[in-house]
């Protein structure tokens, strides 16, 4: 059984940036990355990202959302987010392969995910106060994903359209309704599923509402016990952009926080590549 983790990205430079470090972190604990792109532009920034991924020895499986969606009412962020739910329609999987949902700004700090083939694994349901199932890190086998999402191997774009057309929030002008569409579809599908057992994993949450075991940008502290993942700071590459920016000090602090976190969680690891990548990314993103 192979283990895959799927990410969805578009040309949003704030998210695209995380891709190499996210892929590196999951690959080191045995998860093969799949990246679904919307609006892939093949420009200098995308090329830098893919070259960096290749240079650190990662061969990511890539898939692309169809250009046909350009004429659709759906926003690119919605498409890239929901696309993860349909990754099992991509060719080349064995039905017993495990597929987990990931987010590019959540990196793995330890080998804490061991979903079982027989179940649908749902992590941290308490973080939504037991309402929707959090996208990360729902996992199940390819066969189960296909059953739960009612899809088959083939053109995943068709299935995305089918479900978004039936989801009123997918076109909502209200950001909060639209932003959660992926989670709403997932929860609707999984909660109605009664053929497979569900297995819920909880690490608990801190009094401030943030996840135990997670280094989180909302409440940054790298001294958490048994860190499992990190919700990365935003804007860290901007520490290498305009020093006269009014938030430059904040960007620099976030970069410094990030490097201290990486050095603590991955002792002895050489992150020169990440520094070089970040500098180059900052330059290209500013151009």
């Amino acid at each position: 059984m192979k283990k895959y983790i799927v990410f969805g990205v578009n040309s949003n430079i704030d998210y695209l940036y995380y891709l190499p470090i996210a892929l590196w972190s999951w690959k080191r604990i045995g998860w093969e990355p799949i990246v679904i792109f919307d609006q892939y532009r093949g420009d200098a920034l995308s090329t830098l990202v893919s070259n960096t991924v290749e240079s650190i020895g990662i061969k990511a499986n890539a898939a692309f959302i169809s250009d046909d969606f350009k004429l659709s009412p759906y926003r690119s962020d919605t498409l890239s987010q929901v696309s993860r739910l349909y990754a099992s329609a991509l060719p080349g999987f064995a039905i017993e392969d495990m597929l987990m949902l990931g987010d590019v700004d959540l990196i793995a700090l330890s080998d804490a995910w061991h979903p079982e083939e027989k179940d649908i694994s749902i992590y941290n349901h308490d973080l939504t106060d037991f309402t929707e199932y959090p996208m990360c890190y729902v996992s199940m086998t390819i066969g189960k994903w296909r059953t739960v999402m009612n899809i088959e191997e083939g053109d995943f774009n068709m299935f995305i359209k089918r479900d978004l057309d039936n989801c009123p929030n997918a076109q909502s002008l209200d950001f909060y309704k639209r932003w959660g569409v992926d989670q709403q579809i997932l929860t609707d599908r999984v909660s109605k599923e009664n053929r497979f057992e569900k297995r819920f994993y909880y690490n608990g949450k801190r009094p401030n509402g943030y996840a135990m075991g997670r280094i989180d940008r909302g409440s940054w502290n790298i001294d958490v016990d048994n860190p499992k993942d990190c919700h990365m700071h935003r804007d860290i590459f901007k520490a290498f952009q305009n020093p006269n920016h009014e938030s430059y000090d904040t960007f620099s602090k976030k970069w410094s926080d990030t490097m201290r976190m990486l050095e603590k969680c991955f002792p002895g690891e050489n992150f020169d590549w990440f520094l070089l990548y970040t500098k180059e990314y900052a330059k290209l993103a500013q151009a």
Partner: peptide, 12 residues
Amino acid sequence: ANIRVVQTGGRQ
């Protein structure tokens, strides 16, 4: 440390 909840009633 953590909680694991198995929701039974499926095929397993």
